[in-house]
């Protein structure tokens, strides 16, 4: 396969170069996730969110201290190429809307959008008007609720209420079910747990159950420890010790 060549003028403006790379026509500021830039033309600076001059922008558009460490601001003029481990890349436009997306899959967004943490751990919500870029393992499918989705295949959702957990009845029923719950043994299909969506809106699913790893989940848990108090912390300490002992036996 011989590829076509691009230069600063022929690179698409805010569109895909190929299914795996996206070209941003930067003229101002964009939020991007760390390490997703592969190349750029022009004068572009990359700054951590903690950089002083960005205070106003961060205060307006980035409401998630938990993820601030993973994000930077690209500032300047030029063409910026983004890619993520050879995943499929898509861009979406929001018009006074809201959309929630798996944090590790969000690559970049315009400052016209506001970023907030979702109630569901590991997801981020974008509110407002503007464009954002997201990665998925395999093509994205858009479906309408009511629908139940495998947690690993869920990429995000727009306009509908947050999902709730759904467990298959057979899994919780009877002695065997109780044993499974307690010891995690017994034959399971691995499909007992889903996210249940209802209401009006759109649900985005990717075509694989490959979840991009991120340490954001851990940080999210750490962030919630503060709500426990001393008795809760003691109990958690015991649980973790038990769990660690069990893991080390394997």
């Amino acid at each position: 396969m011989t590829s076509t060549t691009f230069n600063a003028a022929t690179l698409p403006a805010n569109d895909n170069v190929n299914p795996y790379a996206f070209s941003v026509d930067l003229n101002g500021q964009w939020f991007t996730q760390k390490g997703k830039m592969i190349a750029y033309y022009g004068q572009i600076r990359f700054q951590a969110l903690s950089a002083g001059p960005l205070d106003m922008l961060v205060a307006e558009s980035f409401h998630s201290p938990l993820y601030a460490h993973d994000w930077i601001v690209a500032e300047g003029q030029g063409k910026l190429l983004l890619a993520d481990r050879g995943f499929d890349i898509n861009s979406y436009d929001l018009d006074k809307g809201n959309l929630t997306i798996r944090a590790a899959n969000l690559l970049a967004f315009e400052p016209g959008l506001e970023l907030k943490q979702s109630i569901i751990p590991g997801f981020l919500t974008l509110i407002g008007t503007g464009r954002f870029v997201a990665a998925s393992n395999g093509p994205v499918h858009f479906v309408e609720p009511p629908i139940r989705v495998d947690p690993q295949a869920l990429l995000g959702w727009a306009d509908c209420p947050s999902p709730c957990h759904h467990y298959d009845h057979g899994y919780v029923r009877g002695v065997l079910g109780a044993a499974r719950m307690m010891f995690g043994v017994g034959g399971t299909s691995g499909e007992e747990h889903q996210f249940d969506f209802t209401g009006e809106g759109t649900v985005l699913i990717q075509s694989s159950e490959h979840v991009t790893s991120s340490d954001a989940m851990l940080r999210e848990l750490e962030g919630q420890i503060g709500m426990l108090g001393v008795p809760g912390l003691r109990q958690l300490h015991g649980t973790i010790a038990q769990r660690l002992a069990a893991e080390q036996q394997h």
Binding site: M1, T4, T5, F6, N18, A83
Partner: peptide
């Protein structure tokens, strides 16, 4: 290349 390579011109 890991994913299709993109050729970028430098002038």
């Amino acid at each position: 290349s890991d994913g299709p390579a993109i050729a970028l011109e430098v002038a």
